[in-house]
Nucleic acid binder design. Structure first.
Lengths: 139, 139
DNA sequence: ATTATTATTGCAACTTCTTGCAATAAGGAA
DNA sequence: TTCCTTATTGCAAGAAGTTGCAATAATAAT
């Protein structure tokens, strides 16, 4: 199923609309695969869509995140970053050098279930960012 | 040990200085106990120290967090919040209604140790914010 | 196709947060 | 105490992100 079909099927059903801005931004996240800040997305989006504005980029990224098509995270730079939704994972970032590693959600699923049991909350979001000291910075 | 003594002992040793701005802001966090945004801190700080500026509040909060005298967190409002450092805990916030609960770090320490073992990272920071659906919003 | 509905966009103004740099003041030495 | 060093502050400008509202355009209905 292509991006467009995926958006079409899932969003129209809920009264949302499939706009070219949303397609463009989702495509950008898809192409890149990694973390992008809103302004990075804005710069790339302008290339294929010169009239797009920054507020639209911010709102669209928020929209995609709300609808689980993108993941939002704070990675310690002070800026929000977004990436395409795909495999469930978390980030562990070194608070000294900034080096980051991914952890598969499966490795933490037990802890998440435990949290759900203890609190009554459900569907605790994966893609959490943790901060620690990487092996190199532990000197 | 009082606030001032604690700052004195730990900060001066590292070449940092004990300024009235830092005292004032730490005192505000201490008084409140809960989460405060930088602008809330700024408003309160001006009452006892009219000349203080916003950049100083932002920098001081960052400084206190770096030195483990305060905890910083993103709680989903888009704004950063700070609270006095004390007991190790995490926040679990409902992504629908915003209601939040605290979880003691002890309850998750096994998961944290597991992460440290799997990744080689150490001292993974407590005070992580998780998002889920609270019992009332699961309808 | 055409029209009606309303979600979404663009614009402009605004709030939040950051950064460079000169002035200030905390802490150590004389 | 007085002077020296330099961490920290205040100022001003700028970057990042948000919000209200009228105009636009994606769907659904005709």
């Amino acid at each position: 199923m292509s991006c467009a079909e995926h958006l079409s099927t899932h969003l129209r059903k809920r009264g949302f609309r499939l706009t070219s801005q949303r397609m463009t931004i989702l495509h950008i996240l898809n192409q890149d695969g990694g973390h992008l800040t809103p302004s990075q997305v804005y710069i790339r989006a302008r290339q294929s869509m010169p009239g797009i504005t920054e507020p639209t980029v911010y709102r669209t990224l928020g929209f995609l995140a709300d609808n689980h098509l993108a993941l939002a995270a704070h990675v310690g730079s002070g800026k929000m970053v977004y990436e395409i939704a795909g495999h469930d994972h978390h980030h562990l970032i070194c608070r000294t050098c900034g080096k980051s590693v991914e952890m598969d959600h499966a490795a933490l699923s037990r802890a998440y279930h435990q949290m759900e049991g203890a609190t009554g909350y459900k569907q605790i979001t994966s893609h959490t960012t943790f901060f620690g000291l990487c092996p190199a910075c532990q000197e």
